[in-house]
Simulated assay, not measured.
Amino acid sequence: MYAALYSRVLSRVDAENAHLLGTRALALAARLPRAEADPVLRVRALGLEFDSPLGVAAGLDKHATAFEGLGNLGFGFVEVGTITAHAQPGNPRPRVFRLPADRGLLNAMGFPNPGAQAVVGKLAQRSGRGIVAINIGKSKVTPLEQAAEDYRASAALLAPHADFVVINVSSPNTSGLRDLQTIEHLGELLDAVRGETDKPVLVKLAPDLTDEQLDQLADFAVEAGLDGLIATNTTISREGLDAPADLLARPGGVSGAPLKARSLAVLRRLRARVGDRVLLVSVGGVENAQDVLQRVRAGATLVQGYTGFVYGGPLWARRINRDLGRAVRNAGVGTIQDLVGHEVGIRPGLAHGAPAPDGARD
């Protein structure tokens, strides 16, 4: 049903307008009964218990209006944002484009959001039924040299109402933001945010970093006692895409299937560097249960989706949870957490490159 609705209606609507319609519908989904949790999918991490390792990446709920509804659809956690200290409209429209032939999206949003102060009240009204993270970024009007104070201001307001905080320094759509992915800048940001909260703090990285840069950041994460790394944000690469050249010439980051291989490669490199000393969250190109399972086996304790949900529809998370639960039981372990980092030694039916569990690709 959703496939028909998407092809006949939603695909004909401007991508950003369709997104806004979707988030309004998700706000209504807060009235629905919560999806029943499968015990084998429960994960303990960051001092929390997640009903499923599958969460929603930042970017979907930019105004903190849909997180309750998303939780009811079967997601184990929702990352709200990106939110900035100052309200801002983001970059000029149009700024979101579908790449259907590539199963991806191109966005140049630039953190449009109502600002931290406006979001506080919405988060404060949480029902407490689900896990909610807050993703904070630098306000466009704030110079890079004042970035730490900008992040501090957002953390002071929002962290008390979230279960954990994500520092976003990796979006390609805010000028100069990725320059903050140096150890010197990250140290300042981390100190600023930690000075305002004792909640877990994670950092979201770009997929376009070199291997040397990833290694340096992994070492920094261990030395600084960082709670976690999220890999990865959208990519500025256009390699291998089938979309029209004029569309690909636009600025912005690509998400979805084109990011799958790089996101997995970054995850594996980080895992090899940090082991289990830093929690890893994998995002980028997750489309089905097999993708989630592969990320878990590669070292991710938690996994996030965004574009896969956009193309998959409201039942996407429930389908993945169903198939993932079946796969975990077939693996003969107690919970999916037992598979974290175990790329070798799993039953043949779940070996790397094996077909997805039944229905995982529907």
Rank of each mutant, 00 (worst) to 15 (best):
L20T: 08
G240R: 07
A360K: 04
R12H: 15
F164D: 09
D191F: 03
V274T: 11
R250G: 06
L144I: 15
G275C: 10
E188G: 05
G187V: 09
Q125M: 00
E287D: 11
L267I: 08
D242S: 15
L324W: 02
Q146F: 09
F97A: 10
D246E: 15
T65R: 13
L217E: 03
L54Q: 02
N72I: 03
P33L: 01
L106V: 07
Q304T: 01
G81L: 06
F309M: 15
N173V: 10
E287W: 11
Q213K: 14
G275H: 05
R361T: 14
G110L: 03
A192G: 09
V56L: 11
L48C: 12
A300H: 13
S282M: 02
G195Q: 09
A156L: 14
V340H: 06
L20G: 02
G256R: 11
A30K: 09
R12V: 01
Q117S: 15
G275W: 07
T235M: 09
A108Y: 15
L324R: 03
G81P: 09
D215N: 02
A218M: 02
V165K: 10
G285L: 07
A25I: 09
A85Q: 11
N107F: 01
A118E: 13
L180Y: 04
A261C: 00
P89V: 05
D38G: 01
L209A: 08
S170A: 15
G90D: 11
A298L: 14
R126Y: 04
P200R: 11
G275M: 08
A249T: 10
G308C: 12
A64K: 00
K204D: 10
E36Y: 00
A159C: 12
A289V: 02
G256K: 09
A327R: 00
V344R: 14
D191M: 04
R361G: 00
S171H: 12
T82E: 07
D38C: 01
L99S: 05
A118R: 09
L32N: 01
D61A: 04
P251I: 07
P172Q: 12
F75E: 02
A29F: 06
A124I: 01
T210W: 09
T232Q: 10
A272Y: 00
A354N: 00
G121I: 03
E212K: 13
A155H: 05
V132L: 03
A298K: 14
L248Y: 04
V310D: 03
L350Y: 00
L280G: 10
L99C: 06
I131L: 12
V165R: 04
R250F: 10
G240N: 06
I320S: 01
G104S: 13
L70P: 12
P348I: 00
E49Y: 03
F97C: 08
R361C: 02
S154L: 05
V283Y: 07
G334E: 15
T301M: 13
L73M: 09
E36M: 02
R347K: 06
V56S: 00
E145W: 08
L186E: 14
K140Q: 15
V132I: 13
G110P: 05
S171G: 14
I230P: 01
R326N: 03
T174Q: 01
V266E: 03
A133H: 03
A58R: 03
V43T: 12
T65S: 10
A155N: 08
Y306C: 14
Y151C: 04
P92H: 13
L248K: 10
L26C: 05
Q117T: 14
D362F: 05
A159T: 05
L158Q: 02
V9S: 15
R295V: 08
G69F: 05
G195E: 08
L106P: 04
